[in-house]
Simulated assay, not measured.
Amino acid sequence: MIRYEVTGAVATITLDRPEAMNSLTAEVKTALLEALRQAAGDQQVRAVLLTGSGRAFCAGQDLREHADNLEAGRGLANTVREHYNPIVELITTMDKPVVAAVNGVAAGAGASLAFACDLRVASEKAKFALAFAGIGLAPDSGASWTLQRLVGLGRATELMLLGEPVDAPRALELGLVTRVVPADDVLKTAGELAERLAQGPTRAFAATKRALAHAATSSLPDALAVEADLQDECAATADHLAATTSFLAKERPTFGGR
């Protein structure tokens, strides 16, 4: 259902329902949130890798479970508020970089999970589909917030209203993904990227995420004020002191994440 593994300073979280294209049941969403909380709270983990098993990254909501809820009169069963919202909020606000290895189809909430990550490495066979309107629903899982920040309002509107699949080359062209690699290399490439981030200045990365999130909805004076506060925090870290000393000594810095 969910596999959680830590190698070095990287936590890998794998959606593991390949027979169902890693679609999201209530049980899977609960386990995913638990795994993300575990990674966020582990001081030894300095980067997170999110991926899926089999031929899909995540096909979104499990429609069989959803149909059962509709038939029983439970509607969405409050899954947006109880599951999707806290999952996406944790990914976007976690004080650690989160990399998505998009190994195949990412549809609906599955696409939203990928968009919430800081960086996305996609297989050349990957496809993204914002399928919400196709089943008569509005977007969820933060897609209305993340997608337009990746591609702009016009493109986000097009992708959501038309719901047409976006293949990997087009996703790269639009800015939906960071890199596109051969299918056999996607997990390796994403893992190397996560490991690179895990060896970096973790607190500076966290400050960068906070600065970007704030600046996306603030005025320039407010953004400048937050940057100043975050810079003060980073200037007091051991990593900044060590990196400055290394720079002056013409040495490559080693970051401890502190």
Results as ranks from 00 to 15, higher is better:
L15R: 08
L248D: 10
R196H: 14
S144F: 12
T51I: 01
R179Q: 13
A183T: 00
L161C: 02
L187C: 06
Y4Q: 08
E192M: 06
Q43L: 10
F132S: 06
E27K: 14
E195G: 07
F132G: 01
Q44L: 10
D184P: 07
L90G: 09
Q61L: 15
D184Q: 13
V80T: 14
F115P: 09
T245A: 13
L63T: 13
D16P: 01
K209D: 02
D140F: 12
T79N: 12
V88D: 01
S123Y: 00
V177L: 02
P169F: 01
L130K: 00
R74F: 08
L24W: 00
K127H: 15
N85C: 11
K125H: 11
F115L: 15
E65R: 05
I135H: 12
G257H: 00
V48Y: 02
I91A: 07
A67W: 13
G152A: 05
L147R: 05
S144Y: 06
V105Q: 05
A204I: 14
F115M: 15
T189W: 02
S112L: 03
L15H: 04
T25F: 03
Y4A: 05
A207L: 01
N22Y: 08
A138Y: 00
G52P: 07
A39V: 02
M21V: 07
R46P: 10
A225E: 04
L176V: 07
D239W: 11
L33F: 12
T7A: 15
G75T: 05
G257P: 00
V151I: 06
E164K: 15
V102C: 06
D68N: 11
A114R: 01
T254E: 08
A101T: 01
L197Y: 03
V105I: 11
N22T: 01
A190V: 01
E82K: 14
E164S: 09
L153I: 12
V181E: 00
T189A: 07
A47H: 06
L113H: 04
A11G: 03
A133L: 12
F205N: 08
F247W: 12
L220C: 09
A213T: 11
K96M: 08
E65W: 08
R64F: 07
G110H: 00
A116E: 09
G8W: 11
E124Q: 09
A67D: 14
E124H: 04
A77H: 14
R55G: 07
R170H: 11
V88C: 06
R170W: 03
L32E: 04
A107H: 12
L63W: 07
T12K: 10
L90P: 11
A207V: 00
A47E: 03
S141A: 15
D167E: 03
V121F: 01
G256N: 04
T12L: 02
L36I: 07
R155L: 14
Q61P: 06
E27Q: 15
T237V: 02
R120S: 05
L32W: 08
A242L: 04
M94G: 12
R252N: 06
G136A: 05
S218L: 05
A211M: 15
E124S: 13
A215Y: 05
E124I: 00
V177I: 11
R210E: 15
